[in-house]
Nucleic acid binder design. Structure first.
Lengths: 287, 287
DNA sequence: TAACCTTACGCTGGTCGTAAAAATA
DNA sequence: TATTTTTACGACCAGCGTAAGGTTA
């Protein structure tokens, strides 16, 4: 059974005549008549009793009208729900961000969004975040990247958000603590070091190699609060991105500008979601 | 929203890929793809996430699938119900018949029908029965007609069922009670008469006029039981159709063949109901 | 007459198929 | 390579409009 004809039948049944239904549909009388003929032929049962005063439903027609009404109601409900998605009156977006972005960038962005959009935040370091977006576990990811990162799969869209400079973090009484001009990394060649997550450590090694030394790594943690406490006790120095320092500013350490390439912060999502209203809205407030 | 595309979307969602859906529908892949593109454009929201392993539903797509399933279920229910009507597993027919037909012709006919067809009998004399069928209050009418009746409206179909000869009904001790050969109406010119319903009385007057006399009408009733009791008491004679005598055979009177035109018994229904299974079935067992 | 219905027929446009290219595993 | 997708384009037929005819109130 062709569902379009069922809806035309509904219009005919409710309006009382083929011509009235045609007017309602913006068609001509024969167009509606042909549809009803085909519907009745396919049904195998007369549905309408024609007369010069319009139409009356047969018993089968009356029964069919109930179903037609139900179908029309469902279609209207489907339409309304899709419009809710399109107008951001409903829908949810899974957002995954690395910790300091989750702390600094995400909350003010979410505050700008309509509360009808259900954004759910989880934390993950970039490699895992990208994997989640690829797998569909997350819709939008906030990640950071270093200069020589491999390119992302073409399935993903990458929107640069900001450039995040690295700072050298030293104790308050360090000899470089009061320097205003950017220092060279080589000036920290003889320090003890704290390394962060694997990618950050790889980046650190790349930078120090370029600066001509091998860092003496004593501790490893990607927790920027712990890092700063270790530095405060003069146990080591480290490089931290400005974002992490903004997330947890510690008066017990000193962040000194250093001549290194900044890391880049970017937003990723699957290409198909370029038109998904929820993703679109979230991307818009994050940029 | 085009309901056909909703059903195609349902097939796609359930089969997991455009190509699998196309195979299921007996179409090609691009045909399905074009439908989905249009559906998404009209929806204003992406519904499918395409990949090389097939498709995944977006959140909006998942919501839409629920409605699509509901629509499909309703369409199936509508189809099933129409087939029930077509196969006489359901449905009802309003039958209106004049009293003696209701007594003699209808019961054995109904006994031959499937009990799933709900036939409802009411009694009415022909003029009213025809009016009911015209108005749609009844679907099938059993009526009788005389030679010079006006033609029926073209909106009605008339199927002759039988020819019903008239009998002269006289007391057992009447001088004509033992006659085997048909009598002439003129032989009853001097009797007292009982007339029936208005149409029957008109027919009686037409016949007697042709036979050359005016009947001395003493009583009027269309109840053929009452008629026969009156005759049994030798209060009058009358003409009764054979059908009425079959309905209520009375040993206390004598029915003698008489040379008159018989009345005709016919079945009427609206032309549109020629294809209605219930009407068709009822007509078939009544013929 | 006016309103409803059909039937007949021409033309448009939706929609399906074919063919080729692109992307992923 | 095999399977998925998309895009482009051609052809067909469903379906709408126009026009004419029939029936009832």
């Amino acid at each position: 059974m062709d569902p379009r004809r069922l809806l035309i039948f509904r219009t005919v049944a409710r309006s009382g005549s083929l011509s009235a239904a045609a007017a309602e549909l913006g068609w001509t009388q024969p167009a509606v008549g042909q549809h009803m003929q085909r519907l009745e032929r396919e049904a195998g049962v007369p549905l309408l009793l024609r007369s010069a005063r319009g139409i009356t439903l047969t018993e089968a027609g009356t029964a069919l009208l109930v179903h037609a009404d139900a179908v029309a109601a469902r279609l209207a409900a489907a339409d309304a729900e899709l419009q809710d998605f399109a107008a951001l009156r409903t829908g949810s977006v899974q957002l995954v961000a690395f910790p300091s972005a989750a702390a600094v960038l995400v909350p003010p962005a979410l505050a700008k969004l309509t509360p009808a959009l259900d954004v759910r935040l989880t934390e993950a370091e970039p490699p895992e975040a990208v994997a989640q977006v690829l797998a569909g576990t997350a819709d939008v990811g906030i990640v950071f990247g270093y200069a020589d990162d491999p390119p992302l799969p073409t399935e993903l869209v990458c929107l640069p958000l900001a450039s995040d400079p690295l700072r050298a973090v030293v104790p308050l009484d360090h000899r470089l603590a009061r320097r205003r001009r950017p220092i060279d990394l080589a000036e920290l060649a003889d320090e003890r070091w704290i390394a962060g997550c694997p990618r950050c450590e790889a980046n650190l090694r790349r930078l120090t190699t370029a600066a001509g030394f091998m860092p003496d790594i004593r501790h490893r943690t990607d927790d920027y609060v712990v890092v700063q406490r270790l530095v405060a006790e003069s146990l080591a120095v480290t490089l931290l991105p400005q974002l992490a320092l903004t997330a947890a500013p510690a008066p017990t350490v000193r962040a000194v500008p250093v001549r290194t390439e900044p890391r880049s912060i970017a937003l990723v999502h699957r290409v198909e979601h370029a038109l998904t209203p929820g993703v679109q809205a979230l991307v818009a407030v994050l940029r």
